[in-house]
Simulated scan of single mutants.
Amino acid sequence: MTKIGIITGSVREGRVNLQVAEWVKELADKLNIDDAEFEIVDIKDYELPLFNEAMPPAMANKQYTSEDINRWSQKVDSLDGFIFITPEYNKSTSTVLKSQIDYLGPEFGNKPAGIVGYGSTLGVAATQSLRQILANFNVATVGPFGAFSLFTDFENMSTFKPAEVHTATIEAVVTTTANWAKAFKTIR
């Protein structure tokens, strides 16, 4: 079974991130892709302190000393691919998502990722920022990416109500990520 984690990118109170992740998962499940299983991985369940180390423990050949970091490491390691749901804050991805990624290293490597962004400018800058971050960990990001507007895809900027026009793009993100994840198993 190919396991794809739909990773949330926000932990703040009143976040809409989880709504987007749930919608993407529902759509992914409806696609019924052979040998692909999707699950939401809420970073709030693995909330770690802000990364403030000289380098990630795995890269320094140290064991993870925190049970929370161990759980996060094991979860990411168990996945074959990712779909990141990222808000756009100040033309970048969220600090908390960047920090969660920074804690690890090899667990992300040689796996594909799709990205779904949202914000006042469709989350495009956050998507580009996240692509650069992931490239450092040898994560291949798929070509299509999702882009939702806080003004048109969210009611009162708080309730996710995506326009139908986005469905085909998100289906492409999901399908491409799942197909790449299957293929990437051969190099890990």
Rank of each mutant, 00 (worst) to 15 (best):
L27F: 03
F84M: 12
I69N: 09
Y103V: 02
V124C: 00
R188L: 03
D77H: 08
K62G: 05
I33H: 08
E53N: 13
T167L: 06
Y64N: 14
S66H: 08
R15A: 14
V41H: 01
Q63V: 13
E164V: 09
D77I: 00
G109R: 06
L27K: 15
N61V: 06
N136F: 09
D77E: 15
V173T: 12
K25I: 09
I101H: 03
I40Y: 03
Y64Q: 07
V20S: 10
L79F: 04
I115W: 01
N70E: 14
A183T: 13
A147Y: 05
V76I: 15
I33V: 11
T65N: 14
D102S: 12
V11N: 10
Q100Y: 00
P106Q: 03
D34I: 04
A135N: 11
K62L: 15
K3Q: 12
K44R: 10
T8V: 08
E155K: 15
L122Q: 06
A147V: 05
I43P: 04
S73A: 14
A54C: 00
E22L: 13
I33W: 09
F38H: 12
E53P: 07
D80L: 11
P144M: 09
A113M: 05
A54L: 11
D45E: 15
N110V: 04
T186N: 11
S99K: 08
S92E: 00
N70M: 14
I33Q: 09
K25L: 13
E164K: 13
K75Q: 13
K3A: 04
K111G: 06
D68Y: 03
I101P: 01
V174P: 07
F51C: 10
A147K: 10
W72M: 09
F160W: 09
A178T: 08
I170N: 03
T141V: 15
G9W: 02
